[in-house]
């Protein structure tokens, strides 16, 4: 059993990050290749200034009009996305493991704080799920795939939470935690999670069309 754990927490982590990072790079390369082959003209509209202007405007909480109109959703969404990165990166247990492997470490969240933040991530996901079930215009667009995405993100956090508190089935829970986390990372380049890198591109393009051609704001 330890050999299996050694595998999923050792080589498999390498494989995961390799697929995750190379996958994202490949995704960008393929998009750019496709742009060059089929829509190269978009470069004559894209400017760095207007791209960044739009991305920046949409990154400021409650600045775009849409965010003021749906403050609850955006509020939850901002916090959720922030914590999605923050909690795993600054979790003591993760840093300890990285330190054991590379002898590199960085500032860590207090476990009790990380615990609360994990609950917040969970609540965010519950909010997204309920919204999908209750709000008609969202329900209309929702299929089981959308719930699956929520589940994929939820699993590493739920299993991590249960494992940390050692509620039950400790060893299987940690194994589930590691594997579900790896699945999530591996899926990012190949699923709708790729909005992580594609959304800034679409935003940049729309920002450029609005800023450079239309001389208007797009927020």
């Amino acid at each position: 059993m330890n050999a299996f754990i050694d595998f999923i927490m050792g080589p498999m982590v390498w494989i995961t990050f390799l697929i995750f990072i190379l996958g994202l790079i490949l995704k960008i390369v393929l998009i750019l290749k496709d742009v060059n082959a089929r829509e190269p003209y978009i470069y004559s509209y894209m400017t760095l200034k207007h791209s960044l202007r739009s991305i920046a405007a949409w990154s400021i909480p409650f600045f775009p009009k849409s965010t003021k109109q749906s403050p609850v959703f955006y509020g939850v969404s901002y916090i959720f996305h922030l914590l999605l990165f923050l909690v795993p990166i600054f979790l003591t247990a993760h840093i300890v493991l990285v330190n054991e492997a590379f002898q590199v470490s960085w500032i860590a969240l207090d476990d009790s704080i990380a615990d609360i933040l994990t609950i917040m991530v969970g609540l965010g996901l519950v909010f997204f799920m309920i919204r999908r079930m209750m709000v008609p215009e969202v329900k209309y667009l929702t299929s089981c795939k959308d719930y699956l995405l929520i589940l994929i993100v939820a699993l590493p956090f739920i299993t991590g939470f249960i494992a940390y508190h050692q509620f039950f089935l400790y060893r299987p829970m940690v194994i589930a935690h590691v594997i579900s986390g790896e699945i999530m990372l591996i899926l990012i380049p190949f699923s709708k999670f790729s909005h992580m890198i594609v959304a800034p591109l679409t935003r940049a393009y729309m920002g450029s069309e609005f800023g450079n051609v239309r001389h208007a704001k797009d927020w």
Partner: peptide, 29 residues
Amino acid sequence: LELAYHKRCKNCHFEQNKGPVLCGECHIK
């Protein structure tokens, strides 16, 4: 100190393929 403890125990447990290797298996609440 932390690394010394962790590596001392875990490296051996991985080599022997037995014994606790996960956080909560030693740091039992």
